[in-house]
């Protein structure tokens, strides 16, 4: 059974003459442990799709099934709980809490879930070490580089052991090297820890790390490609597809 399934997912912003259809009857699936990239030109609805799947926003029509739960049927309390336990978020601008240090930021979802401070901190520390940030535990976000901040954000996304990680342009704010590091980290998350990853990106090179790419245009799925794993060739293929769209 797939982890994520969308059925005729539609999102319309505004009303009447000013209405804009961001997503138009989108149907897709993400399987457990699968790394899926979503690509498409600006304004094609990539981020909207991610937000709907993550339960950050409500659909106008259609539904999202996550692990068998229909998100549209969950009230705010259940939805919040689901986000906390089942989903990890990685944003383009990291969105770390500026007044908390690295460990505290990572531990936050656990603490919010009522896990004891010590346990939460221990888990957070372990994840930060896995991300290569063992020597940056007590640093606040403004004392970390962009790449380091994003790794803290990834650790935060993983600390609650969610089945699904949603990443919105995770490398959009990073240089090439840091971007590659983050992309391979995501690959590793799927391969080693079996988490499903749904990543929105502009960058064909980064998308090439995924198992599968879904192309969106004007709110519709226009193409889908399964990748072989050969980085350079795949990048070229993806670029060609993007140009076609």
């Amino acid at each position: 059974m797939s982890l994520v399934q969308t059925e005729n997912l539609t999102k319309v912003y505004g009303k009447g003459d000013t209405a804009v259809t961001a997503l138009d009857h989108v149907n897709l699936t993400v399987n457990p442990g699968e790394f899926v990239a979503v690509m498409g030109p600006s304004g094609c609805g990539k981020s909207t799709l991610l937000h709907l799947i993550g339960g950050l926003d409500r659909a106008t029509e259609g539904r999202v099934l996550l692990g068998g739960h229909d998100l549209s049927r969950l009230d705010d309390v259940k939805l919040t709980e689901l986000r906390r336990r089942q989903i990890g978020f990685v944003f383009q601008f990291y969105n770390l809490i500026p007044v908390l240090d690295a460990v505290e930021n990572v531990a936050l979802p656990l603490v919010l879930d009522g896990v004891k401070q010590n346990t939460a901190r221990a888990k957070a520390t372990a994840w930060l070490q896995k991300m290569g940030l063992g020597d940056r535990l007590a640093n606040r976000p403004d004392h970390l580089s962009g790449g380091q901040q994003q790794r803290v954000a990834i650790a935060r996304a993983l600390v609650a052991e969610p089945a699904l990680v949603l990443a919105d342009e995770p490398t959009g704010n990073l240089d090439t090297r840091a971007g590659d590091e983050i992309a391979s980290l995501l690959r590793q998350i799927a391969d080693d820890w079996g988490r499903a990853i749904l990543m929105v990106t502009h960058d064909p090179r980064i998308a090439a790390y995924a198992d599968r790419i879904i192309f969106l245009k004007d709110g519709r799925v226009v193409d889908e490609t399964r990748l072989s794993g050969n980085g350079t060739d795949e990048t070229k293929r993806v670029m060609a597809k993007m140009e076609a769209i």
Binding site: V77, T80, R83, I97, P109, L112, A160
Partner: peptide, 15 residues
């Protein structure tokens, strides 16, 4: 904005 971020991370209204 802060509240939005905390909510995205799973903080509920009571928190």
């Amino acid at each position: 904005r802060d509240i939005g971020m905390l909510r995205a991370l799973g903080a509920n209204r009571t928190t």
